[in-house]
Write a protein that binds this DNA or RNA. Structure first.
Length: 901
RNA sequence: GGGCAAUUAGCUCAGUUGGUUAGAGCGUUACAUUGACAUUGUAAAGGUCACAGGUUCGAAUCCUGUAUUGCCCACCA
């Protein structure tokens, strides 16, 4: 067997290994070794990254999560489909390309280039971006099925979009209507409520009257919109104003027409806030528009006057203010109020304003005719609204079936989801940008037609608007599987098994996938959603281009390797919580990868013949040379196998990994391999450990484990499709290894722990007394009562490891120091190297510690309540502790006396 | 204003359903260095588990309140 290099060089392996995996066909479920076998389908749809740029660290986290899960499930024998794709990200991409064009000097891209040319530019940009992204996904080691690569804006997905639009339209769930919507002047498009980003900023609150004879003072931070007021709302219980309800006042504030203001009652108005009266501007406030609708329904209508236009300037209805920008109109109006003596006071307040997620400007509320999804309308034949479908899928299961329940990890996000649903309004899905799925509706005069293609006949023109990008990504779990065709993939893989996402897209995406899937397929989109937090820098700040703290995951891979990147983003995370990413973490990850490499390298050097039979994961038969350390490591390996498996099942990626790290480094490398060096002759067992270890590590560190595996077994035998280690027949349900017949399995753990304590105590004493590491010293273990059944094994190990000599049943030699550890007395002859004063101080310190501990334990055991109520096991444990402490105390006292004698 | 988290060693975090003298990694200190690995090893120091009550035989863990920090939602017109 050729010798491996001293340290793992990721760059040498990663590319060729990925190619090998890809070539193997195992990324495809039907390419798996047992594709026709019993394995159940397991599907993960990769959230498609936006084609607005390249992947960042957050994507590295997501890919690591998904690929770890996919590899684990694949090794468990599932028919895993990890499906990759990208998202055209309508607004985001168009906004990005327009910004780039503007930087190139094209000030008004839409007017200057026109629809077709601009779309061409965006397409070119997005294709370039897409190509880079796909390369990056490969570099991250992602084991996804490239043959099923999807794009939210390709032909297949466009069919799905058109199909669902038509169905929802036929069901009356999509409608065209005039409502107040969010409008970005800069982007010249609508956006949904969820796309608003609220920013806090200082504002002035103006208190004024519309005219001198108007009886109520109102307050507003946007006085210019008051030119469009049509009512004043007061609380009907408010004694100050209730007598005015129903009255109509006509005031002239300089708009094209005098304002006709009706005083209306609304319990939503807080009498204690401000003046207790609210100027109602139906055209420029969502809330006020609701009031307008309510009044209409109650047969007490109020007017609607639009004073701000789509260009962000005042409309003709604003009379003397027409054509002014909003800000200029405000200044002019306030100046007029001041002149007239109508302005009573101003107040500086801080205010949250909704800005457009992509274009960044403050969104205006405008009344516009747009396309909407009706979330509160009953679906024909289903007896439920879309909102109810969305709620039920998470709450009790789709159609009340618990097996069709979307389970969210961590659970607390369920509450947030319900809360969001409560407040959900009809979803505005039409956008005036050009990059996106065109709305499949055709017009000719008064006629309209819904369908992908124009109907027969002349003169039909398609709706100019495009669809909200989330309308298409909402279909992702099934549009990727060929829907609306009834494909085998749909049957096999939907509902998908597991989905992960950041909490910031819970509403955008998770909610919409649930809506679309329950509506279109009568199925939930996925059984489990894992919500991860975001990665922050070492100071806890978000990574962003503007803060200049960005980390390029591909650079990290180049420098430290993909496995190190994966480990550094995965370790330390917990569901739903943010985590920090910093250099030391990557270095630590790189060190771990290298440690694993060297552990395997050492095992291979020690094994005379790596045995491919052991790949099946069966423990080798007992052999004569087996000792305590062997029993212990087998036991510990089984425990870690179980812990890793259980925790991956529960999506505790970080804990599973930590557990594996702890075993590998602190148990296997630091203890067992050191002993194995001395004892020797462990071919079979080392083979077994080597095999199992690589399999357990593979989902976390696919490259380094596969690299080692191939060095041993050749390129025809890929680790990625080895079977995940199962419980060995020789290990019982309690995790005890019945492997070494001459050893009690339950004792292995305790005995080895004693052994470790003894060794550590000796090392510590040597260090305290500055004994040169290379110097051999005599150690005597005094055995009063048999330490345990495996005492011989311990003593044997003690005698063989490091530089110790052991004698049984002995008196403390002259000048030796005495220790109590692991339940026995130990004498170390330092050949006069000790300082008696120092030794006395050490003993006294230890004595003080144990003396302080004993009374607490004793008191506990004398407490009748404790003895009566605590479980047997706990009481027995406390008694044992007390006994051990008392024995130690006695020994320490003796040792002190002996020292002063 | 409503809601949700977090608060444990200098730093980053575990602590799996209440039961060790509360753990890890990094950092720190001392020592080591040709034998798998300095991307290393050995040993050590370091914590009133934010605070105050309560429940319990027993609380980092459960309950109530307070403080600080972060996030989400609503919004003040």
């Amino acid at each position: 067997m050729k010798e491996l290099p001293k340290s793992y060089e990721s760059a040498k392996y990663e590319e060729s290994i990925y190619q090998l995996w890809e070539k193997s066909g195992f990324f495809r479920p039907e390419g798996l070794p047992d594709a026709a076998g019993q394995g159940e389908p397991y599907a993960i749809m990769m959230p498609p990254p936006n084609v607005t740029g390249v992947l960042h660290l957050g994507h590295a986290l997501e890919n690591s999560l998904m690929d770890t899960m996919a590899r684990y499930q694949r090794m468990r024998g599932k028919h895993v489909l990890l499906l990759p794709g990208t998202d055209h990200a309508a607004v985001a991409t168009q906004a990005k390309v327009e910004k780039l064009l503007q930087a190139e000097g094209v000030k008004h891209p839409r007017e200057q280039l026109g629809r077709e040319k601009l779309l061409e530019r965006i397409r070119a940009y997005s294709e370039e971006s897409k190509a880079i992204i796909l390369q990056q996904i490969k570099k991250m080691g992602t084991s996804c099925d490239w043959s099923r690569l999807a794009y939210t804006f390709d032909e297949q997905r466009n069919q799905a979009v058109n199909e669902i639009f038509s169905r929802m339209y036929q069901d009356g769930l999509i409608y065209r209507g005039a409502r107040v919507v969010n409008w970005s002047v800069k982007g010249q498009s609508t956006c949904s409520d969820d796309e608003l980003v609220y920013v806090e900023r200082p504002a002035k609150l103006y208190y004024f009257k519309y005219s001198h004879d108007f009886p109520i003072t109102i307050a507003s931070t946007r006085p210019e919109t008051k030119l469009g007021d049509t009512a004043v709302a007061v609380n009907p219980t408010d004694e100050r104003y209730r007598h005015l309800i129903g009255k109509i006042f006509t005031v002239d504030v300089g708009a094209a027409e005098p304002l006709s203001l009706k005083i209306i009652g609304s319990s939503a108005v807080d009498p204690a806030f401000g003046t207790g009266a609210l100027g109602v501007t139906p055209a420029h406030s969502q809330v006020d528009f609701d009031v307008y609708e309510q009044q209409k329904a109650a047969n007490d209508p109020i007017g609607l006057v639009q004073v701000i236009g789509q260009d962000g300037n005042m409309t003709a209805a604003a009379g003397g203010y027409a054509g002014l920008t909003v800000v200029a109109a405000r200044e002019k109006f306030v100046a007029w109020l001041t002149d007239q003596g109508l302005l009573e006071k101003t107040e500086d307040i801080s205010q949250n304003v909704g800005t457009h997620e992509r274009f960044g400007d403050v969104a205006e509320a405008l009344p516009l005719t747009q396309w909407f999804v009706a979330v509160n309308k009953e679906i024909p034949g289903r007896g439920k609204t879309l909102k109810e479908l969305m709620r039920q899928a998470v709450e009790s299961g789709h159609n009340g079936d618990p097996a069709q329940k979307v389970r969210i990890t961590p659970e607390r996000f369920e509450k947030i989801y319900y809360h969001w649903i409560e407040h959900l309004r009809d979803w505005c899905i039409s956008r005036q940008i050009w990059w996106g799925h065109r709305i499949p509706v055709w017009y000719r005069g008064e006629e309209s037609y819904v369908g992908a293609e124009a109907p027969l006949g002349e003169g039909w023109a398609q709706d100019h608007d495009t669809l909200d990008t989330w309308f298409s990504s909402g279909l992702w779990t099934f549009s990727t599987l060929g829907w609306p065709a009834k494909t085998a993939d749909l049957k096999n893989f939907h509902p998908t098994s597991w989905m992960q996402m950041g909490h910031e897209i819970l509403f955008f995406w998770m909610a919409r996938m649930i809506l679309m899937s329950t509506y279109a397929l009568d199925q939930i989109p996925f059984k489990d959603v894992y919500i991860h937090g975001i990665l922050r820098d070492e100071l806890g700040k978000k990574f962003s281009k503007s803060s200049g703290n960005g980390v390029d995951p591909i650079e990290v891979i180049k420098q430290y390797g993909c496995d190190a990147l994966r480990w550094s983003v995965l370790s330390g995370i917990s569901p739903g919580n943010d985590s920090r990413f910093y250099d030391e973490k990557i270095e630590g990850a790189r060190n771990l990868v290298n440690k694993l490499w060297n552990i395997c390298r050492f095992m291979l050097l020690s094994i005379s013949n790596p045995d491919s039979k052991l790949r099946k994961g069966i423990l080798p038969a007992t052999n004569e040379a087996s000792g305590l350390a062997d029993a212990w490591i087998v036991h510990r390996l089984e425990r870690v196998r179980r812990d890793v498996t259980e925790n991956l099942e529960r999506f505790n990626f970080s804990y599973a990994g930590e557990r594996l790290r702890d075993f590998t480094w602190n148990e296997l490398a630091d203890w067992y391999l050191e002993i194995a060096k001395i004892e020797g002759g462990k071919d079979e067992l080392l083979n077994y450990i080597f095999n199992t270890l690589l399999k357990l590590w593979h989902p976390f560190m696919p490259f380094v484990t596969e690299a080692i595996w191939q060095e041993v077994y050749g390129q025809e035998n890929l680790l990625m499709v080895e079977q995940w280690p199962a419980m060995d027949p020789l290990i019982d349900e309690f995790g005890e290894a019945h492997y070494f017949e001459h050893l009690e399995p339950t004792m292995a753990e305790a005995d080895f722990a004693s052994f470790q304590e003894i060794v550590t105590a000796i090392r510590s004493a040597r260090a305290d007394n500055k004994v040169e590491p290379a110097k051999k010293i005599a150690v005597y273990v005094k055995e009063k009562t048999p330490l345990c059944k495996n005492n011989a094994a311990i003593l044997k190990a003690l005698a063989r490891i490091s530089d110790l000599t052991v004698a049984q049943d002995t008196q403390k030699p002259e000048g030796a120091i005495a220790l109590t550890a692991g339940g026995v007395e130990i004498f170390i002859d330092l050949a006069g190297a000790i300082d008696p004063e120092k030794e006395k101080a050490r003993l006294e310190k230890e004595l003080a510690e144990v003396a302080a501990y004993i009374p607490a334990l004793a008191a506990k055991l004398q407490n009748q309540d404790f003895v009566a109520r605590a479980p047997e096991k706990v009481i027995a444990g406390e008694k044992a502790k007390l006994a051990a402490a008392e024995e130690k105390q006695a020994k320490l006292k003796q040792q002190l006396i002996a020292l002063s004698a």
